[in-house]
């Protein structure tokens, strides 16, 4: 997926279901052995949410968190609390479905070693919205019916992601 030309890279998203080794993957993530961002698909209605969050992380000069990948998770979250953001959007041991986000530099091939470590079935990204929990999304991003009655939900989501560093909701 295309990002800002200044970012000089592209975004690759993959969705997996029935993943058997989530604990193992989570441990490797914490140790910094995996160059990616792995998250719960329940809070993502459409890839554009991730695109806007990642793009912002890449365009900004300074990061609020340690790596570009934690920054994507942080940017996705509507709060400014880092650990809460990572907890809400990151994975738990009891999760079975994973959304994996990697950044590809010009000419890079996708990291097949990374994806081989995930013991689960890959699902087409078109199915992403079937894994989303609409009520949880509205609650997490604090979107009331008054808003969804007139504004498309993706508009509400990406706009919050784009502005949360200087606005509070």
């Amino acid at each position: 997926m295309d990002l800002d030309p200044e970012a000089e890279c592209k975004l690759l998203l993959k969705l997996f279901k029935n993943v058997k080794n989530v604990k193992e993957i989570k441990d490797q993530l914490i140790k910094g052995e995996l160059k990616c961002c792995i998250m719960k698909p329940t809070l993502i209605l459409d890839p554009i949410q991730v695109v806007v969050a990642a793009n912002k992380a890449l365009v900004n000069e300074k990061l609020t968190t340690k790596t570009i990948y934690t920054e994507i998770l942080f940017n996705l979250s509507p709060t400014k609390n880092i650990s809460k953001s990572l907890q809400t959007f990151g994975i738990d041991e009891k999760d079975e479905n994973l959304l994996v986000i990697t950044l590809l530099k010009e000419g890079d091939k996708e990291d097949t070693d990374l994806f081989k470590k995930i013991d689960g079935e890959e699902v087409s990204l078109d199915k992403l919205k079937n894994y989303a929990d609409m009520n949880l999304i509205k609650r997490t991003y604090k979107i009331a019916d008054k808003e969804t009655n007139v504004t498309p939900i993706l508009n509400s989501l990406v706009s919050r992601i784009a502005t949360k560093d200087f606005l509070s909701f």
Binding site: D4, V52, N55, K56, V59, A144, K146, E147, N149, V150, T151, P152, L154, N155, S156, V158, S159, R160, A162, T163, L167, F169
Partner: peptide, 15 residues
Amino acid sequence: MRCKIAGIRTPAIYL
């Protein structure tokens, strides 16, 4: 943003 929350549609913000 305030408009959206108030129930007025405005363009989505991307960056």
